[in-house]
């Protein structure tokens, strides 16, 4: 076991531990802090697997942005009955049973699946090889084809021309979506103006 592999397992175990603590913590503030470690741990895994851009995005968006919002929300609402979450024993039992059944199902499925047709994703310990932002940028505008790794060599299908896949469109259309959602949120948040009183 070399250093990279050791780090991978350590970070992974810490991430899982904090994720469990998010669910188990009774104080909502503590849960938010455990969430911080979970999200940061996930970004650490991304970095270890060579997805530097994804790791950075995870840090900036989730740890830096969303988690701050969560903590703001907690601070504004954590008064009186909402500061601590007490889950009744019955709900614990049900959620444990359902959760472990789901876990068992997924683990069984993953173990029953053979992944030998895949190129294994390796831990990248050479920083020069782990520069994904350029590639992602080129795929985004469709200059470079997104690489397909799969059980079938898709280029080998007769009579079929693979076309380049670009990701500009989702990026652009989301801006329309965000405008709409912003308007909706503003509508729901603002108080209704009393027009009749003015008249």
């Amino acid at each position: 076991m070399d250093l990279a592999e050791f780090l991978f397992w350590t970070v992974g175990a810490l991430t899982c531990l904090s994720a469990v603590m998010v669910a188990a913590a009774q104080s909502i503030v503590r849960a938010a802090v455990w969430l911080l470690f979970t999200l940061a741990g996930v970004s650490g895994l991304y970095f270890l697997l060579g997805a530097d851009f994804l790791g950075a995005v995870q840090l900036i968006v989730y740890v830096g942005g969303i988690l701050i919002l969560v903590i703001f929300g907690v601070m504004l609402t954590a008064q009186g009955p909402l500061t601590s979450i007490k889950t009744p024993a019955g709900e614990w039992a049900i959620s444990l049973v359902v959760g472990f059944l789901m876990l068992g199902l997924l683990v069984a499925c993953i173990l029953a699946t053979s992944f030998d047709t895949f190129k294994p994703t390796t831990i990248i310990d050479d920083p020069a090889r782990a520069r994904t932002a350029t590639d992602l940028g080129l795929v985004l505008v469709g200059v470079k084809d997104s690489q397909v790794q799969g059980p079938a060599d898709l280029n080998q299908v007769p009579g079929r021309q693979r076309e380049g896949i670009t990701y500009v469109f989702p990026f652009e259309i989301l801006s329309v979506h965000l405008v709409v959602v912003l308007i909706g949120a503003a509508y729901l948040a603002r108080a209704k103006r009393r027009r009749k009183e003015q008249a």
Partner: peptide, 9 residues
């Protein structure tokens, strides 16, 4: 605005 946004989706 919400209606048109939903229809686009």
């Amino acid at each position: 605005v919400l209606l048109l946004g939903a229809v686009v989706g």
